[in-house]
Design a protein around this nucleic acid. Structure first.
Length: 267
DNA sequence: AAGCGGTACAACCGCCAGTGC
DNA sequence: CGCACTGGCGGTTGTACCGCT
């Protein structure tokens, strides 16, 4: 028996989302929370695959997302985490609040990869190309201990930034970060990085969107746990998207609206 | 102004792990 | 235990945009 497709292929729209579809999806999530994605398109009146809805929400519509390019500090954090974790983008994204795995993956492929190559560093091994022969030796020793961050010391020096392991002052120097204190705390948190490496659930992320259990029952979802982290949803729970006034939004929510407006103006 | 190539990023696809029956 | 189903992940593709000629 073949695997059932995630959605009926017939009548399912593909391609870029319209502002109207975005509004429908946002309205539905605001009203009902995140539950069974398979049912979302039908209930929300969308001719989309549930998977597509989930992707659209998590990668673009989520109100806690930051927009725009990664800051220098975020970029360094990505490099450092990538040295430890490899292409585990979701793990990396979990350490960058407001960033998605897709966004980081894209940024890695379009920006960081080239940057490292330009610097003569292999983006896969994080070793300088001319040292690659030595890399194996080093890595065999590294196995004895907790994973060390490749040779990002060299990368960071080359890049004019500082080492994550020794960044008690460096992060404050990096004024390009949106929230240097947050990044600093993440970078300094060895146990956090260790837990990442060990593939354990990161304790600081217990309330993040990625780990939210869906509301068990829409009818009695008085305070789904995932809303603890998104108080704005509580404010908006009883309203449709059209009922929102700009002033009830924080910057983040405003970004979502702005995105929608921009999208709408395009179409 | 048009054509072209490069870049950035949203979206899709296929696969896998977890879970419930 | 095996199957069906869902959600999540990583890789890849499509396309809009931008700068250059």
């Amino acid at each position: 028996m073949g695997r059932q497709p995630c959605c009926d292929k017939l009548g399912v729209k593909k391609g870029p989302w319209t502002a109207e579809e975005d509004k429908k999806l946002i309205n539905f999530i605001l009203t009902n929370g995140q539950c069974c994605w398979r049912a979302v398109p039908k209930l929300a009146g969308l001719r989309r695959c549930g998977k597509s809805c989930r992707l659209r929400w998590t990668n673009y519509l989520r109100p806690d997302l930051k927009r725009g390019l990664l800051t220098e500090a975020e970029e360094q954090l990505v490099i450092d985490l990538h040295a430890r974790l490899g292409n585990r983008w979701s793990k990396i994204a979990a350490r960058l609040p407001g960033r998605t795995d897709n966004e980081i993956k894209n940024h890695w492929n379009t920006h960081i990869k080239k940057k490292l190559l330009k610097m003569g560093i292999d983006p896969v091994t994080h070793e300088p190309f001319h040292k690659e022969s030595k890399a194996e030796q080093i890595s065999s020793h590294a196995d004895d201990n907790l994973p060390q961050p490749g040779n990002h010391q060299l990368m960071l020096e080359t890049d004019g930034a500082n080492n994550m392991e020794d960044n008690s002052s460096s992060q404050t120097e990096n004024s390009s970060s949106d929230d240097p204190r947050l990044l600093e705390s993440i970078c300094n948190d060895d146990s956090l990085l260790n837990s990442l490496w060990m593939d354990e659930p990161p304790f600081v992320d217990g309330t993040s969107w990625n780990n939210q259990p869906p509301p068990q029952n829409i009818s009695n979802m008085s305070l789904p746990s995932w809303e603890d982290n998104c108080s704005w949803l509580l404010d908006c729970q009883d309203f449709g998207i059209h009922d929102f006034g700009i002033d009830c939004f924080s910057d983040i929510e405003f970004n979502t609206l702005t995105t929608l407006e921009m999208g709408e103006s395009k179409h």
